[in-house]
């Protein structure tokens, strides 16, 4: 069986929105410890991994199951979440459906037909990073939106004391600079200077669910994938984004 209750359907909507911008479908691996999932986008440029430990749920009961979900349909349902709605996710094994229930003044129940995605699990590569930037989510998001006016990609640079996002257009440039003294920065770790270039459309999709108060961790290397981590209402999201390189 699988039955799990989340305090805020609206908060979980942000998680589903973020998954749906990058992925078409995802296979949730549920067990007594919580819910996990990992998948690459169709072009294999980005990877998203989700971990919701059982402590993030108000109620949680689960045996081992793989629950394959079509994300566009799930997103449409989650868009109906209202403030103060609780969310119950419940596996109906007989009908092979995931019941998505909004609980508030009554119960509104959608039954989402499941996909057979068994065996489609994605392994997450273990990459080693020396530079880690912990930054306020809104500052990062605004800098990426600024850069989007200038170019379709950015260069991220990190040194022991500084983090920069640069965009170069044909005529105009943009640079966001954050030093370890700035309010936006929680910490900058790393002993060397590194830089990698990334596609902006993917970056903007990855920070879609981030709002004021969220803290984002960035792991950077030289022409290495960007690793990004943040939590939304106890749901831990991790992304990898492959770099663009000079040929």
């Amino acid at each position: 069986m699988f039955k799990a209750k989340l305090e805020s359907a609206k908060e979980f909507k942000k998680v589903v929105d973020t998954m749906a911008t990058l992925l078409d479908e995802i296979c949730l691996q549920v067990n007594e410890e919580g819910v996990r999932a990992a998948a690459m986008d169709p072009s294999h440029v980005a990877l998203l991994s989700l971990n919701i430990p059982r402590i993030a749920f108000e109620d949680y009961q689960a045996d081992e199951h793989e629950i394959g979900i079509e994300l566009e349909a799930f997103k449409k349902i989650m868009n109906r979440a209202k403030a103060k709605d609780k969310l119950i996710l419940e596996l109906d094994e007989e009908r092979n459906r995931l019941n998505v229930i909004f609980e508030n003044q009554g119960k509104r129940k959608f039954s989402l037909s499941l996909l057979d995605l068994s065996g489609a699990t994605t392994k997450v590569p273990e990459l080693e990073y020396h530079n880690v930037i912990t930054i306020k989510g809104d500052a990062l998001k605004e800098a990426l939106k600024d850069a989007d006016l200038i170019s379709d990609h950015v260069i991220m640079r990190a040194s022991p004391y500084e983090f920069k996002i640069e965009a170069k257009g044909d005529l105009n440039d943009f640079t966001a600079e954050f030093s370890s003294e700035d309010d936006a920065i929680i910490s900058i770790e790393g002993e060397e200077e590194v830089k990698s270039a990334f596609n902006l459309e993917y970056l903007l999709d990855m920070v879609k669910g981030v709002s004021k108060g969220d803290i984002v961790k960035l792991y950077l290397g030289n022409d290495m994938p960007l690793k990004m981590e943040y939590s939304l209402a106890g749901c831990e999201l991790m992304f990898l984004l492959a770099p663009r390189i000079e040929e």
């Binding site: 990877l47 392994k123 590569p125 492959a242 663009r244 000079e246 040929e247």
Partner: peptide, 11 residues
């Protein structure tokens, strides 16, 4: 010329 890599290169 810039080239977009895929994650497969890092597995």
């Amino acid at each position: 010329k810039k080239k977009q890599l895929t994650l497969d290169a890092f597995f």
